[in-house]
Design a protein around this nucleic acid. Structure first.
Lengths: 193, 193, 193, 193
DNA sequence: CATGAATGAGTATTCATTCAT
DNA sequence: GATGAATGAATACTCATTCAT
């Protein structure tokens, strides 16, 4: 191919394309098995073009992770009222975001070596919320909130990857199921007896 | 310079040593960031020695994973009686094994790209057991067994890595907690009401 | 994004600016460590603009060297009279030029791979002059004119870079000193005895 | 070529060969125009072999320069007696070393960016010696020792490259000539009168 | 049994240069 | 006159693997 500018080329578009292809490849193959050469091949440009828009393979990966984290924790900021409905909403929002951003989620929650930090932060968020919800769910009172939070994050992670991102279950289905595992309301429990 | 067999050297010992060092390094650094040169350095032998005992980096890694899987699923074979105590025991056995084999567990459940297969198999095992236990836990009847199993595996994985392998909680503590999250017995529920 | 001619832009000015920045950078960092991107960044234009005025990095560098050489050897053309004062003047002129064009001097005498040719030509010039001055300096008669010329060029080069271009000594000081090293007049020598 | 050890191969020999070829290439082409690929081609090995023995292109270059400097300044340590003959000897030793190590000299005195430091140190050495020799050479008394030293180093450098390393003049010839330029003894001067 | 020595095949990154606008 | 966008060709360096001893 001749050197120089392509006909109809547009920088922002190229950058976006590279970013998208990188997300796809990182998500499915992981960091180490995704080569710059793969990314540029997928975007139909040459290697120097990659470096026109990104500093390095590493910095791009970090960028993607940061975007994921910013998006994710913004979900916790919108606090409506600390009532019993809150939990339902938080989990729903999380799953909704994962479902809308499956590739970024795979990267940020799976592939990244820093994903454990994200999950730790999630655990903290849940602990905070659970503490406040104790009153509504008597079951919680006899349990270790920290352990429950960790378990919950584990559940969310797994359900997301195996059932949500594979489109086997919907956000709503999983939200309901998670709630009924973790937050059987007292009244509900009584029905069982 | 001197070459050939070291004094006091012993094939089986070298192999074992290499294997141990490989496990340590794979567990803490992952597959891609563990180099053969690191392994042999840690075992104090040279690179060709590695190939004397293992076919390749990859095959050793696969070996380790297979060992983990064999160990793991043997735990499910010892079926005492399909009573209600069974579940408690299965989870206890699993956590016990993880706790006794932390490095192999990290490799087989985390670092390996094939770990998702292991977890799928775990899910199946749990589904099978859960189906049988339905009678003892009325709560289960209204839930999707597959989802519960997936969630349970997620919980186990996370609690194992964050609380068990870090020695923050004991096998018993986590087993209890897991049971009370997932299998509140009917009688227990009635206490809450 | 906006493209095309800048307001207030002027071709000759851009070319001059690029040239100046190139001289600065080549002088301080050398040929290989000066990138086109550095030059255009310093001149606040884009890379294609560079190629609007210069054929290539190499050709610009060659240009600069040629300018240096033309300037330099023009100094030898103005031959007033072949008297004993001539030498003093030639050296003074040289140092004066170096002092007034420090960057070009660094490039033409140091950084360029062709600088050895310049110095060879300088040596020849000095040989020619020295030959004629032999009569005035008996000391020269017993010496190898070629070697003395080479040595003189070495001295000039070094004193220029370490003392003249660093402003530690003036043109006059160095001229005097060089003359007293190389051309102790016979009368002066006799004073010493 | 097949992988693995070559017949009759010997590490020390390979390293030495690489070093020699590197010296040759750095000396004639300079740092930037000498590629690792050139060096290994000349030594008839592959690129990884280079890294078996050297850390990097840069570190090898630095190594060579350090060797040169150590060698060089060792010459100043053997101080026989601080008499008038000393100077003659020091210059002779220097030129002798240069003549015996032409390639390393080219690298250490020319090609290296740190060569200016070496020359500064040489200047200091000469200043020190000159100061002590003042008594023997009345000519020196009226001159600036620092300038004379700088000039001397310039002369030595130039004569070395143009006449000594090209085998146009011998160590002795150049030593004599340098001495007669810089250190016409008082008695000698009187002959001229 | 084990080592010293070497290599094939990558792999990220850089830089001068060029085309389309 | 000048820019945005892109590329060809390097280039240093790495790593798993293998041969000869």
């Amino acid at each position: 191919m001749a050197r120089g500018r392509k006909v109809n080329s547009n920088g922002e578009r190229s950058k976006q394309l590279l970013r998208e292809k990188a997300i796809e490849l990182f998500a499915s193959n992981g960091y180490y098995q995704t080569k710059i050469s793969d990314i540029v091949k997928a975007a139909n440009v040459t290697q120097p073009t990659f470096y026109l828009y990104f500093d390095s393979k590493d910095s791009l990966f970090i960028d993607l992770n940061e975007q994921f984290q910013v998006d994710l924790f913004r979900l916790f900021e919108e606090q409506p009222g600390q009532n019993e409905a809150h939990f339902h909403q938080v989990i729903g929002n999380l799953l909704q975001y994962f479902s809308e951003n499956p590739l970024l989620t795979k990267i940020g929650l799976y592939q990244s070596e820093g994903s454990y930090l994200v999950k730790e932060r999630l655990v903290e968020k849940f602990e905070y919320i659970l503490e406040k919800q104790k009153q509504y769910f008597s079951k919680l009172e006899q349990m270790d909130i920290h352990i429950v939070s960790q378990s919950l994050v584990g559940s969310i992670e797994r359900l997301t990857f195996t059932l949500l991102l594979t489109n086997k279950k919907t956000v709503d289905q999983l939200t309901e199921e998670l709630l009924s595992i973790y937050f059987v309301k007292d009244e509900l429990l009584s029905y069982a007896t």
